[in-house]
Design a protein around this nucleic acid. Sequence first.
RNA 1: AGCACCAUAGCGAAAUGGUUAAACGCGUCAGGAUUAAGACCUGAUCUCGUAGGAGUUUAUGGGUUCGAAUCCCAUUGGUGCUACCA
Length: 867
Amino acid sequence: MAERYNIKETETKWREKWTQANVFTVSEDKSKPKYYVLEMFPYPSGRIHVGHVRNYTLGDVVARYKTAQGFNVLHPMGWDALGLPAENAAIERGEHPDKWTHENIASMKKQLLSMGLSIDWSREIATCDAEYYGHEQRMFLKFLEKGIAYRKESMVNWDPVDNTVLANEQVIDGKGWRTNAPVERRKLSQWFMKITDYADELLDDLKKLDRWPDKVRIMQENWIGKSVGLQFKWNVTGTDHKIEVFTTRPDTLFGASFLALAPDHPMAKELAGGKDGFDAFIQECQSCGTSEAAIEKADKIGFDTGYTATHPLLGREVPVYIANFILMDYGTGAVFGVPAHDQRDHDFASKYNLPILPVVIPEDAENFTCDDEAYTGEGTLANSEFIDGMDVESAKAEIIKRCEETNTGFGTTQYRLRDWGVSRQRYWGCPIPVIYCEDCGVVPVPEDQLPIELPEDVTFDKPGNPLEHHPTWKNCTCPKCGKAARRETDTFDTFFESSWYQFRYCDAKNPDLPVDKDKVLYWVTPTSDKNFRGVDQYIGGVEHAVLHLLYARFFTKIMRDCSFIEGTDEPFNGLFTQGMVTHETYQDAQGKWLFPTEAVKNDNGEWVHRETGEPITIGPIIKMSKSKKNVIDPEDILNTYGADAARLFILSDSPPERDLEWTESGIEGAWRFINKVYATFMDMDISKNQTTMPITDESALSDKAKKLRRITHKTIKTMGDAIEAFAMNKAIAYLREFYNAISTFKLQNNTDKPALDEAVRAFIILINPICPHLAEELWSSALGQTDMLAGYAWPSYDENLLVSDTITLGVQINGKLRATITLPADADETQAQEAAMAEEKIQRAMDGKTLRKFIYVPGRIVNIVVG
RNA sequence: AGCACCAUAGCGAAAUGGUUAAACGCGUCAGGAUUAAGACCUGAUCUCGUAGGAGUUUAUGGGUUCGAAUCCCAUUGGUGCUACCA
């Protein structure tokens, strides 16, 4: 018997060897095709969680597989190291963010190293280091020069707990995405990025991203929210005022029965200010919270200004309201209401008894009315003067044309997407490199003064931005006039850092430039024409579907337009979004959540508390979360079962895009498999020190050996295909099937031995991307190889062994299987029919019936239609 | 409310129009081995039958097809995203 597999010792040994031999360090090697695989970098919280294990294992399988396929693989890692938690830690325990962050990086790196990932650590970056963020400041100066970055006064989402500004995307249900505190509105001068200028390109290029999940593309499309329509003016009767509105349904103009302004529309105050009840109305609008429940229930309310408005094409007057459901920051902050064809307008009109006049009539409708609900479908225009009888599309075009002719409006496009506000009133971020001078205004920091580094001596004893409180840091002289001036104390949104790190990895240590263009070109230029320039495979959580992934796409385009990179329009060629890791939940009799380690089964098979013995209720299987305590610590798993078992289990069973349920029995099963494989191969009678596997005489092999060869070659193919398709669960299933075939194979003579050698050697190479430590150990101990397996070529398969010369076909009668026949693979229809008819079961089944049709799909099926 | 995705043994899943639907794993049961437990090995695990064998079956209902888990429509249930975006 072989010795028991010493997982800990063996895994450590191989990791040390890989590190010593620098096997994962890569450079631009033009003699090889390249492959760039990247997983979303982690925030250095200090400890990895199971989601990280899944994420980085997936990437590592791809990296090791592609390496085996002969690619020069770039597989880097770094730290998304700026952001609020470091400041919160500083406030809570008085530890400096820089120290806290770097300590966390050190401990997390240790954990990641123990997973045995094939990472080129020489390219490691931490976004909190000035060597990284300094380049961001350099780029920002260029963005400023090009007008991509600009400053504007604007209402911002103010998080009263974190004391910071949030982006629209960071507000969820009117609450801060981190603090969950109700967001307030405040006016501040902020830096913005003109992402809206790129809205069309961001939208159009989504079409290129055919290796992205559809759902992510759909989410981004909705987020950008392009809508084409008409912007035009109404005259307020008896005044010089004109109200500008935007609509996507100009065709319904003649169904208009009111005009509505947003409560914070500048004209609202002008028209209604001072009128009875106006202030109370505005107050009511504001008091109605922004929470989901409030919006859901909120009635549509309006305030009649007493004014009416007319449109030149309409020839009719409609009342002007101020209404709570009109948003100031979309379109023009004013709409015309068509109750018959918009449900919101319908609700409003019903409440205030405004006319509901249908102007689009569906086909075949008689006495059509919209009294109960709005009709938004297709139809023919009616009650609409010169556009009567037109379809919706023609009517839209006609109204836009007439407005343009009369100079009262124009066709235009609106986006839901807003410009990206990047200022944060925070310390632990990249300082925005501008200076405010009383005489010169906003002055960019001269490039030779970069980077602007964060001061180390800061305090966190009062709320707000420590940079603001710092006694000297913000004082400086104006680069233009030399007078005393003040530094910008805001820092960038941390999505800034994660928007370009994928390029920095290509040239991670460049002190002078964000990246060297040629180095980026080497790593992003595709080796297949199916792809465009970009990271070949990006892997991460779907929670970044809009924020990070949209900003990174935008950043790529502006870096291109500012010549920091070349000819690259999109950052990520292939995107894979992994599912969550879930776990059962446990509660004691009092309803208190318990850790999985606290729950054990007693002798009667009941779940009880490990220490108290009290009964435990098993709850639903949900995403691991600290509050529900249904978490497992990867470090425990790695210590107990080893990296290979953790990697194997996390890839088994569930397809990577779906949620994975973490179970104790599952990880144990993976661990057992590893031990079993080791024991089997160490005991097996296989040739050592083999360099080739000569099969001199195929025909001399026994049938069993031939069968083993077939599954060997089949698995080489199917497993490669599965990894390419990201179906890691299938790859493992095929691998286990292959193992079962090898372990049950009984070697009866020496002639068959090369077939067994071939199978074992193939198996070890195939399992390497998933369980690299085990593979190396078997490669060296069981096969006696002296070179390292890491980087060893994937075996090739023999097509001829995948097909056999005879095939078994099912014979159906009226689609129901009745018999099987064995035919030569190239049999023609006549042969097939003869063979089928010769079957006794078929004859019996056909007895007394007429043959109507004979269907023969070679290699697939025979179907006999009888009647 | 809208959009998208999903539904297969006790569980996780394979099979994407055809060769006995359920590979592979987990769990369960029986047997072997063991001082004992675990690990390990062998077998079983939709239903009926000792067995040969027969029958049922891919959430539900329809449709297309010689043939449907697979394509189309509707319903139900689940998940995600968006949420007064004019």
